[in-house]
Simulated assay, not measured.
Amino acid sequence: MKWMEFSVHTAQEAVEPISNILHESGASGVVIEDSNDLVREWNGAEDEIFELSQEDYPDDGVLVKAYFPLNSFLKETVEEVKQSINDLLQHNIDVGRNEVTLTEVHEEDWAQAWKKYYKPVKVSNFITIAPSWENYQAAADDELVIELDPGMAFGTGTHPSTVLCLQLLEKLIKGGEYVIDVGTGSGILAIAAAKLGAKKVEALDVDETAVESARSNSSYNHTEAAVTVRQNNLLENTKMKADVIAANILADIILRMVDEAYERLNTNGCFITSGIIASKKDEVKKALLQSGFAIVEEQMIDDWVALVAQKK
């Protein structure tokens, strides 16, 4: 089968919304090539870090690549995607160069080529993310390995916003907590929470493909006893009172759920918000404070911000 690679040269701020646009348009895979990955300082010993090749990355900005089957609807799909990306400007999202290129590829080339970007990475003091096909073995007794197969439709867990969430979960979860993961995607945050000792985790996502992926990854990591995955729009129809709510999604979506997150948390419970580009930080903080939260921690990697807000 033949596929069309849709590649857009954009800015970091637009990576998440463009990835979402591509996924909702029927893309059967998304690959992110971020020039900042070449200079980012990764945690871990030298023998744990995979050396990246500069030839695989753009000189600046980010390349977001998606794959669509070659069919009679492709032209219309491409035009709709381009228009949706242009519409991001109306929300004050920097789309960078916004240069689109189309390349025809064969399925066997695509299925293998993207995997060269995905190697085991230690993202916190205890958590290592590894692709399921690498057969990675923990280097220490206290190392928590999360093995993922993102199915070429979700991130590999090393995006700054995801790393920030994982690091904050590691700080907050001591054992026995009730956790809600909003917009679970591949299920990585829910799996991490379970491995860190959470008693019960609800992993929620509005997308059916995400629900299937999260369930599969949870089962692969033997966390299905603690993790329940279901299709749900944000926090609607959730009844569980949580000690921790994690939302690694866009700032504009976080703003819509702040009040509901406050209601769903137990007293002294924490709301981890990530996926926030630096220019949106103050707006999110203001909304959290207005809902009654206290901002107790703020972390940043590159231009991405994560906040911990506590219900007093």
Rank of each mutant, 00 (worst) to 15 (best):
H159L: 10
Y178F: 10
Q137C: 00
V182Y: 11
V206M: 12
A242Y: 08
G175A: 11
A203N: 07
V227Y: 08
K174H: 04
S218D: 11
Y262I: 02
G155H: 08
T156S: 15
E212C: 01
G183F: 08
I191M: 03
V179P: 13
A190K: 00
R215V: 08
Y220N: 09
L235T: 00
E224T: 02
L235N: 06
Y178Q: 14
L204V: 04
Q167D: 10
D142T: 00
V201P: 07
A140H: 04
T223E: 12
L189F: 08
G183K: 04
A210Q: 09
A210K: 04
L204I: 05
L250F: 12
K174N: 09
N232R: 05
K241C: 06
L234S: 04
E170R: 07
E224K: 02
D252H: 09
L144I: 15
E170G: 00
V163N: 04
R215L: 12
D243C: 04
D181C: 06
D141T: 09
I245P: 06
I180L: 15
D243T: 02
V258E: 14
L169C: 09
L250T: 15
E260W: 01
A203L: 08
G187M: 13
L234H: 03
L164E: 09
Q137V: 01
L164Q: 06
L148K: 03
K171R: 11
